[in-house]
Design a protein around this nucleic acid. Structure first.
Lengths: 206, 206
DNA sequence: ATGACAACATACTATATAGTATGTTAAATT
DNA sequence: AATTTAACATACTATATAGTATGTTGTCAT
């Protein structure tokens, strides 16, 4: 009988995996994948090396899991799902930009974007990373494209606008915003970039 | 008397410095600063560890020299100086984009932009890097701004356009372009981004 | 209740790497 | 020409780190 109440488990594979992934995300986010050690990650955890290598065959596999199990859902959660609430997706895009980038504390902004960081650092030097990061980027672009197609159907976009092209430019701008703010470390720059983005939007709006 | 012909020197401080910096640039460009070792760099060189530490007190100092002595001049050389030939700087900006990014071989494109790579990797984790990279970025932006001010005076830009804001957006786009192409590894994307950039330009042109 | 195995912990190893200590030679100075 | 010193080369050290080997315990099926 499975009528027993779900007792407190001191050992739980999936829960431990999340704990490691969460700690790894923070460490990799702030120090880079090559700059962080497995011991660093485990220090931010209640677990030890045995648990780590029970979950991940190698450090690279942890990195891959970070992309698939943390970053990809985060993209959907932060940049795609919120757009559904907006009749005009373009409004949603600007609001999310202002909220998640413009409204971000400087200390956090300095760390950049988790996806962009990994793309810049790992894409050229490891094929496994490159493949997974490419999939994550294309997920972002494709989902953005869907919303733009919806916008086009609703008449918010000019008829001749190529939505995929716009999606590419929007995602590129997100990455560029993060990179720029990371390098210049001046939150005021966001306003300049945001205003330019709005200017661009006027060229595709009907 | 200094009439002696400049004989072949087997030892030359500045020449050795250049040799190390050039090798380091290539290695750091392709593997990242944290991902490359001093031994890796020296292997691409006719020199050894003695020469290295005679020039640079530490690995970080090599990184700093890379920014100041290699990357900064490269920005001026590739993105700023060429604009002087153009009556309308906006034309020059698009031509340079098409030449240096669009016309870049895929294998090389996959490595991204040397400045952007270092910004993403090192800005958050080392103050010395952050300071120097910020100076390099602002150099790029300020010089771009000068050309835009010239464009404005010549009547190529609308009177209400804030040139500094545009300069920020243009430099951000360069970084974004590189980052995007690096992550997606599809040169065809450049066209999409380039077209969007031209669209943006129509909003500031008079 | 009790084996059996999964889910860990601990101790260890092999290697890579930044930096150092010291030796050597070219070349300018006198 | 002799001396000195800058510009290197070579050999070594200390440490960090990915990965392994092995030991221990919680949990579940029977």
């Amino acid at each position: 009988m499975k009528s027993k109440a779900p007792q407190f488990k001191t050992r739980n594979l999936q829960q431990s995996r999340r704990e490691i992934l969460n700690a790894a995300f923070g460490e990799v986010f702030s120090k880079g994948f090559q700059g962080v050690s497995i011991d660093d990650i485990l220090k931010k955890t209640t677990l030890t090396k045995g648990a780590f290598y029970h979950q991940f065959p190698t450090k690279l596999d942890l990195g891959y899991a970070l992309v698939d199990e943390v970053i990809k859902p985060m993209i959907i959660d932060r940049w795609i799902a919120p757009l559904e609430k907006y009749e005009n997706p373009l409004d949603g895009i600007l609001v999310q930009m202002k909220t998640l980038i413009g409204g971000c504390e400087p200390a956090h902004l300095r760390l950049g974007c988790p996806l962009n960081n990994l793309v810049q650092e790992m894409s050229p030097i490891d094929k496994g990373f490159h493949k997974r990061l490419q999939i994550a980027l294309n997920l972002w672009i494709d989902e953005m494209d869907k919303h733009l197609k919806r916008a086009k159907k609703s008449g918010f976009l000019k008829a001749d606008v190529k939505t995929k092209q716009v999606a590419h430019f929007i995602v590129m701008s997100h990455e560029g915003f993060y990179g720029m703010l990371k390098g210049l470390d001046d939150p005021k720059i966001f306003t300049a970039l945001y205003e330019s983005m709005k200017r661009y939007f006027t060229t595709i709006e009907s």
